[in-house]
Nucleic acid binder design. Structure first.
Lengths: 304, 304
DNA sequence: ACGTCCATGTAGACAGACTAAACAGTTCAT
DNA sequence: ATGAACTGTTTAGTCTGTCTACATGGACGT
């Protein structure tokens, strides 16, 4: 029962193909296949099964892969303890984010990171992305979900809530509602909306508004990029739901954010991690920095 | 941070010398030394330190060895889960016992053990033995202690209580006290005692009797072997404290066991294990059998 | 039927952990 | 004081095991 081999099985469970595992672990597919074969012989019963041209785990294989995760976690815990002992958060940490969260949090985080800790960031369009899948590739995945709704529970991932960001109604200067301290769903009937592509949390809130107001909303466009949506709103082509902390940066003063009452209108920004990676000291350090930065952003907005 | 190397460090912590580790792991001392050197280089700071002609762990080394134990435990847990999955308790289990407990429990345990599980037993004289030290060599160590008093707490060992066995006063047939249902400490003043060698739990009870009765006891001999003590008692050379469930087998009917009241007179029989070994399915199975057997012995004596 | 995508065999190269033997320091006895 | 016996370490060389490179054999889509 070699740990390395078990790790390979776990990777197979995460990535779904021998080739992907080989790529991720800097090996040839042949090597992976051979090691899995040895593991299977040691285990005493089939762990994998051919399906089409691919390979899937048997129930036994999944069970063993779960155990492999436990081992990986306790191994990571041990090395983290060791790093604490020497108090140095070693190594590199990789991170993916969706654009707005990255813009809001990452610059501040990277500035306050100690030396010897390298944070490699990347961004990924949220519309077409399966956030949990990225945890195989990156140490930390910044994702968003509706409040209360844990879309990715039960996959065995570590979920750390970072902040909840209100979603306001974005209005152009001069709009009839632009002077109001807040608006209710019924105020919004008859407006033209700039929508976002499917899969966004915004979507559900719009439906909730429709439900509450008792009328359908007219949706004129569908964009993924926030800056694009904002420019349309500013141009008077419609109104939109926009995240409070990350809106209006491009053209300050020309977009009016108005809170929406009567509906819980917010998105939750969380960090997703594979449990073993979550234990690494370097990763935990970054997570801590993210939480500090998030609460700071929230406070600075509450003050104004 | 290789697991095998960490395991070696852990063994060093347990056994205290490179040679001992080499012997236990079927390697040459050279191999052990080399691997420890590699580990030290990986760890980044000294783990061992020469002391005299031996080698001791630094505080850093001890810390890392502790982590290594955690890893070993979770690894053992995983393989145990796997064995459960295939429901077969694989492999061999080694056990040491002091003579009386072995005589009382082991035959019954071995009889009811399933196939494919081999139990290797050995006995060790309890007088000169440091029970915890045997956990390095054997999977299960049967040890005894005074009730309530955990002589071997805090060493990071798993302790499973098996039974508490009363210690009665052994009298020869025809002794003035032999007809009594029970005796109190004051009844025992003036008797000549057959003692046991130092370190035995018996010792403390004798002291307690002295304290309670307010008089010193005269001790004529000191033996380790129970059968020898019994034969002296039967010969009328003195009386002795003997464990209730394992006495009088050699010459039935010639030794009278009389309960001692007014003093807690019992010994606790426990199983000692290294935490990682305690997780193995085969080991857990044996422990379960031991507990069953122990409670059965206790019940059968309570019935008479 | 073809090329493409998989996983898997086979042969050989390479790395790393081992043994054997010589070495160096400490302890203890004579 | 000196040698014998014990530590752990170094060196050189062997060997096991994991890797790569290349070839093979199915499964899918066109």
């Amino acid at each position: 029962m070699d740990v390395q081999r078990l790790e390979l099985l776990r990777e197979l469970a995460d990535r779904g193909s021998v080739t992907a595992v080989a790529l991720a672990t800097h090996r040839t597919p042949s090597a992976v296949s051979q090691q899995l074969k040895v593991l299977e012989r040691e285990a005493g019963l089939p762990l994998t099964q051919r399906q089409g041209r691919g390979l899937v785990l048997t129930s036994a294989g999944r069970a063993l892969a779960r155990s492999a995760t436990d081992i990986a976690v306790s191994l990571a815990k041990a090395t983290a303890l060791w790093d604490e002992f020497r108090n140095q958060a070693s190594g590199e940490v990789s991170l993916v984010t969706f654009p707005t969260a990255g813009q809001m949090l990452l610059p501040g985080v990277i500035k306050h990171l100690g030396p010897g800790l390298v944070l490699n960031c990347a961004d990924e369009d949220p519309e077409l992305s399966d956030f949990p899948a990225f945890t195989a590739e990156y140490d930390i995945v910044l994702a968003h979900s509706m409040s209360g709704q844990l879309s990715w529970a039960g996959r065995g991932l570590r979920v750390v809530p970072l902040m909840t960001e209100p979603l306001d109604v974005g209005l152009p200067v001069g709009h009839p509602l632009a002077g109001r301290a807040w608006v209710a769903p019924r105020d919004l009937i008859g407006e033209t909306w700039i929508g976002v592509t499917d899969g966004y949390p915004f979507e559900r809130i719009l439906h909730a508004i429709e439900q509450e107001a008792g009328a359908r909303l007219s949706m004129s466009h569908r964009f993924a990029d926030l800056a694009l949506i904002e420019s349309f709103v500013i141009a008077g082509l419609g109104i939109a739901l926009v995240p409070r902390y990350t809106s209006g940066r491009g053209q300050p003063g020309r977009l009016v954010l108005t809170p929406l009452r009567g509906i819980e209108s917010e998105r939750q920004i969380v960090a997703l991690m594979r449990p073993d990676r979550a234990e690494r000291l370097a990763v935990r350090t970054v997570i801590e920095a993210l939480r500090r930065e998030a609460s700071q952003v929230q406070q600075s907005h509450a003050a104004t």
